[in-house]
């Protein structure tokens, strides 16, 4: 397998070399487009909390994500391809995040950076969205609290890897229903399922300063 690939590459190179003087090459349209797309991703940094600082570090001198084609951080969603949600997302900012996602043109991808963005992290409380995937679709989750800059770089490379496999003929993943704009990404039951308390956090229903009450067992227990 490896051999065959190698020889293919050789053949391609020869081909390119012989054709370049005549100024044209032959390739698959998908390859060409995905090559162009992945080499010039413009991330839209949506940094809220601690993770945003690591995102800044990723862009700054030592880690320098411009090396991978993310030369330009797009501060406007209209000109961005990758939404990087770095940090906690409380309910108050959720509609803003959804709006930014809706404003980004297709094709677009989303990275959820850090435990908080991915699951709510340690903030299993009244104000925090329990995973941004309840609000927008996510392509890559980066674990960590905060993830190291290397982690974010790896996520960006994974997005590039994903783009490699996409075809422009396949429109399914790129279709958007205008009706869904500004709505939760998942149906209510699924939000309940993934956002319900679990593990240690089920036993944290301390009601008053001086006494504790029984734990919440199922998400449905809390219905009004």
């Amino acid at each position: 397998m490896a051999n065959r690939e190698k020889s293919n590459v050789g053949a391609e190179r020869r081909h390119v070399e012989t054709e370049i003087p005549r100024n044209w090459i032959v390739t698959r349209l998908d390859d060409l487009i995905s090559w162009a797309r992945r080499g010039s991703l413009w991330p839209m940094p949506f940094g809220t909390a601690c993770c945003a600082i690591e995102m800044m570090a990723t862009a700054a001198s030592k880690y320098d994500m411009a090396r991978y084609g993310m030369e330009r951080l797009a501060y406007t969603p209209r000109q961005a391809d990758v939404l990087i949600v770095a940090g906690r997302v409380p309910y108050k900012i959720a509609p803003v995040m959804r709006r930014i996602w809706d404003q980004m043109p297709q094709p677009k991808w989303c990275i959820s950076m850090g435990a908080c963005a991915s699951t709510g992290g340690v903030f299993d409380n009244y104000t925090m969205v329990q995973g941004i995937d309840t609000v927008v679709p996510v392509d890559v989750y980066v674990p960590g609290c905060p993830p190291r800059p290397e982690g974010l770089l790896y996520a960006l490379l994974m997005i590039q890897e994903k783009i490699k496999g996409e075809s422009i003929a396949d429109l399914r993943s790129r279709e958007e229903d205008p009706e869904r704009a500004g709505k939760p990404h998942l149906p209510a039951e699924e939000v309940e399922l993934i956002a319900g308390p679990f593990g240690n956090s089920t036993f944290q229903n301390r009601v008053s300063g001086l006494e504790s009450s029984s734990p919440i067992l199922r998400p449905g227990d809390r219905k009004e």
Binding site: Y91, P95, P184, A188, R206, S208
Partner: peptide, 23 residues
């Protein structure tokens, strides 16, 4: 103290309300 840690509404309701906030 009588306010539960996770709020009074369910998560789905909280998400729905948040997104319906009407920017």
């Amino acid at each position: 103290k009588d306010f539960p840690l996770r709020g009074r509404f369910t998560r789905a309701e909280q998400t729905r309300r948040a997104l319906a906030m009407g920017l």
